Simulated scan of single mutants.
Amino acid sequence: MTSTQNPDVVAPTAATATTPAASVRPAAPVAPAASVAPPSIHVRALLTWLAIFPLVTIGLTLIAPFAEAWPPVVRALVLTLVVVPTAVYLVMPFLLKVRGGLHGRRAARRG
């Protein structure tokens, strides 16, 4: 009976095979990424407002025709269910990226 037929014999796999120590290479040093200081609380407030205000305005305009009879709490619920994720996952990352680019240009001009 060969090892392929014997269920008690386990052939080495890539996960269980060992590599000789001579073939292991240390990781190449990685240069630290250029870090951009996080925006101040005032800049974050401005960016949040820039994200939220247009989304709320557009959202209210779009739901107004069919949500006129809805109670205000339901209107607010529906609006925020759309506006908050859109702002958090789409608009804010874009605004932070734009802010980082502008901040980087300003630092390059100074430096």
Results as ranks from 00 to 15, higher is better:
Met1His: 08
Met1Thr: 12
Ser3Glu: 09
Thr4Met: 03
Thr4His: 08
Thr4Tyr: 03
Gln5Trp: 03
Pro7Asp: 05
Pro7Asn: 08
Asp8Trp: 13
Val9Ile: 15
Val9Trp: 08
Val10Lys: 15
Ala11Ile: 09
Ala11Met: 11
Pro12Leu: 15
Pro12Arg: 13
Thr13Val: 01
Ala14Glu: 15
Ala15Gln: 13
Thr16Asp: 09
Ala17Glu: 13
Thr19Gln: 07
Thr19Ser: 08
Thr19Lys: 11
Ala22Gln: 06
Ala22Trp: 02
Ala22Val: 05
Ala22Cys: 01
Ser23Lys: 07
Val24Gly: 02
Val24Phe: 03
Pro26Val: 02
Ala27Trp: 04
Val30Glu: 14
Ala31Met: 09
Pro32Trp: 11
Ala33Asp: 12
Ser35Asn: 05
Ser35Arg: 10
Ser35His: 09
Ala37Gly: 11
Ala37Arg: 14
Pro39Ser: 04
Pro39Lys: 03
His42Tyr: 13
His42Arg: 14
His42Thr: 10
His42Phe: 14
His42Gly: 12
Val43Gln: 05
Arg44Thr: 05
Arg44Val: 03
Arg44Gly: 04
Ala45Glu: 13
Ala45Cys: 08
Ala45Arg: 15
Thr48Gly: 14
Thr48Leu: 08
Trp49Cys: 01
Trp49His: 04
Ala51Val: 05
Ile52Met: 14
Phe53His: 07
Phe53Asn: 05
Phe53Met: 01
Pro54Glu: 00
Val56Thr: 06
Thr57Arg: 04
Thr57His: 02
Thr57Gly: 03
Thr57Tyr: 02
Ile58Phe: 10
Leu60Ile: 02
Thr61Gly: 12
Leu62Ile: 11
Ile63Gln: 14
Ile63Gly: 00
Ile63Pro: 01
Ala64Asp: 04
Ala64Cys: 00
Ala64Arg: 02
Ala64Leu: 01
Pro65Tyr: 04
Phe66Arg: 03
Phe66Leu: 07
Glu68Gly: 14
Glu68His: 04
Ala69Arg: 10
Trp70Asp: 08
Trp70Val: 05
Pro72Gly: 15
Val74Gln: 11
Arg75Ile: 06
Ala76Met: 09
Ala76Arg: 01
Leu77His: 09
Leu77Ser: 15
Leu79Arg: 06
Leu79His: 08
Leu79Glu: 12
Leu81His: 03
Val83Cys: 10
Val83Asp: 11
Thr86Glu: 02
Ala87Lys: 09
Ala87Met: 11
Ala87Asn: 10
Val88Thr: 11
Tyr89Lys: 10
Leu90Val: 15
Leu90Asn: 14
Val91Cys: 12
Pro93Lys: 07
Phe94Asn: 03
Leu95Arg: 06
Leu95Thr: 06
Leu95Ala: 11
Leu96Tyr: 15
Lys97Pro: 00
Lys97Asp: 04
Val98Asn: 00
Arg99Asp: 01
Arg99Gln: 04
Arg99Val: 00
Gly101Val: 02
His103Gln: 07
His103Ile: 00
His103Lys: 00
Gly104Val: 00
Arg105Asn: 03
Arg106Tyr: 05
Arg106Gln: 08
Ala107Ser: 03
Ala108Tyr: 06
Ala108Lys: 07
Ala108Met: 04
Arg109Gly: 10
Arg109Ser: 12
Gly111His: 08
Gly111Asp: 07
